[in-house]
Design a binder for these strands. Structure first.
Lengths: 150, 150
DNA sequence: GGGTAAAAGTGGTTTTTAGTGGGTTTAAGT
DNA sequence: ACTTAAACCCACTAAAAACCACTTTTACCC
């Protein structure tokens, strides 16, 4: 089972191609032979999610099966299913980001790739840093988090 | 179980390499064979955490398992998992700090390494001293702390 | 207390590998 | 059939990893 960690600053070239860092490339090769699914993030942050294909096949049915009379559920479904795109790494270890996803997450040249355990997140550098600055807001947290001792 | 104590002033060279003090190096060698995980601190102080790998394997699942519909949980996950990087000491007992972590904690030449029991903290000297000056904030604390007799 | 030896810290050089940028062909859509 | 974009291929550049040599400090012994 894949375990993505760590952050990488990476550049998208003029064609919308993105070189996956070699460390991550190795993990992807072994988790899914380079076959991934790229989709939109469901919460308000406007980044992309990168799932190894086998992991995507676990979460897709879960999202489809949700009772969707609720607005938030419909939003989740429309975003996560509606933007999902299967991709493969090219021989040079790069992926081509589809234009709709590029604009959904406002991706320009400078990007950040963030490991989140079973998936990766892809941010524009600008939104990543502005999120870092502003997100230390309220202090309500679930009891599981209050109890942590790190 | 490792027990890091004490503080060291250390220098990072132009390549971002950091010589671990020999005292600490010995502790790391026996705790984890020199295999560590370096990551971002979760609260607003912008220092780095240094975990011996076995200790990291205890806390990573705890963080991943948190219910993440809450903003603060997502922040914790994105920072602590998202910046986590496994590293090994080179033959000269140095580690290379990845650029994203260097900039997260504003590390320049002069650094402070602070023992915190099961982990170490790595600060830029400047932020360490400014934190020392300004950090005596409010007086709300959890009951466990109120009950202490030191 | 001074000298010596060993270890620790520092810096630079070389080699390899990863990242970048085009250019060309093929396919797809208009 | 023409235009545009995506896939493929190859060459070049830059950065990271490994290697090695030197300086400084510390500890130990004379």
């Amino acid at each position: 089972m894949s375990n993505f960690l760590g952050s990488h600053a990476i550049n998208m070239d003029a064609k919308g191609r993105l070189a996956i860092p070699s460390r991550v490339r190795e993990q992807l090769a072994q988790a899914c032979g380079g076959r991934i699914v790229l989709t939109a993030n469901a919460d308000e942050e406007r980044c992309l999610w990168v799932y190894p294909e086998p992991q995507w096949e676990v979460i897709q049915p879960q999202i489809e099966a949700l009772p969707n009379m609720n607005r938030n559920v419909r939003r989740l479904q429309r975003l996560v299913l509606g933007y999902a795109t299967p991709l493969e790494l090219d021989p040079a270890g790069r992926i081509l980001i589809p234009p709709t996803l590029r604009s959904y997450a406002s991706l320009d040249k400078k990007l950040m790739l963030i490991g989140q355990g079973k998936k990766l997140e892809l941010w524009s550098e600008e939104s990543w840093f502005s999120w870092l600055d502003e997100s230390s807001g309220s202090d309500d947290m679930p009891p599981e988090m209050e109890a942590l001792s790190l």
